[in-house]
Amino acid sequence: MLKNQAISLQYYYVQGKGNIVSDMGGEKVMLSIHNGKYYNLGEIGGRIWELLSQPVGIAEIVTSLMSEYEVEQRECELEVISFIEMLSKEGLIESGEDHGLL
């Protein structure tokens, strides 16, 4: 898990195990089996969660979102990093160093 680790462009990120995710009116909601908390990921957060189904880097997430939504690159990068930090702090994702996976 990624707790207390800085978010890095050299890492890939992937969904952690033990989360139940449902689509509710176009927004994703999630229940963490590990901590018993519910999370409303929203529409864009839900899309990021989908991208995290396979090991992915922040740059790849940003590129995907910019092709799907009207957003400036810098704003998108900041929002993605903030979202990844939240997922990390809550123990919902895992990470590893990029060893040619990206």
Rank of each mutant, 00 (worst) to 15 (best):
M1Y: 08
K3P: 05
N4E: 15
N4W: 10
Q5I: 15
Q5P: 02
A6H: 06
A6I: 10
A6Y: 06
I7W: 03
S8R: 13
Q10P: 03
Y11D: 15
Y12L: 10
Y12P: 00
Y12I: 04
Y13W: 13
V14Y: 00
V14I: 13
Q15T: 08
Q15C: 11
G16Y: 02
G16P: 06
K17C: 03
N19D: 06
I20R: 14
V21S: 05
V21E: 08
V21H: 00
V21M: 04
S22D: 13
M24G: 07
G25V: 03
E27C: 13
E27M: 14
E27P: 07
E27Y: 12
E27A: 14
K28V: 10
V29G: 05
V29L: 13
V29N: 08
M30Q: 09
M30S: 02
L31I: 08
L31K: 01
S32F: 07
N35L: 02
Y38T: 08
Y38I: 07
N40H: 00
N40K: 04
N40G: 04
L41S: 04
L41M: 14
E43K: 15
G46V: 08
R47N: 13
I48V: 15
E50Y: 09
L51H: 11
L52I: 01
L52Q: 00
S53M: 09
Q54S: 03
Q54V: 06
P55M: 02
P55A: 02
G57W: 00
G57C: 04
I58W: 03
E60T: 08
E60A: 07
E60H: 03
E60L: 02
E60M: 03
I61K: 09
I61G: 10
V62P: 02
V62Q: 01
V62L: 05
T63S: 00
T63K: 01
T63I: 00
T63D: 02
S64M: 11
S64W: 07
S64I: 09
L65N: 05
M66P: 04
S67V: 02
S67M: 06
E68K: 08
E68C: 01
Y69C: 09
Y69N: 11
E70S: 15
E70R: 15
E70G: 11
V71D: 11
V71E: 14
V71Y: 11
Q73T: 12
Q73Y: 13
R74Y: 08
E75I: 13
C76T: 14
L78K: 13
V80I: 04
I81Q: 07
S82C: 11
S82Q: 14
M86R: 14
L87Y: 01
K89I: 12
E90D: 15
E90P: 06
E90T: 07
G91W: 03
I93K: 03
I93M: 00
I93T: 01
E94C: 07
S95Y: 02
S95W: 04
G96M: 11
E97T: 11
H99Y: 05
G100D: 06
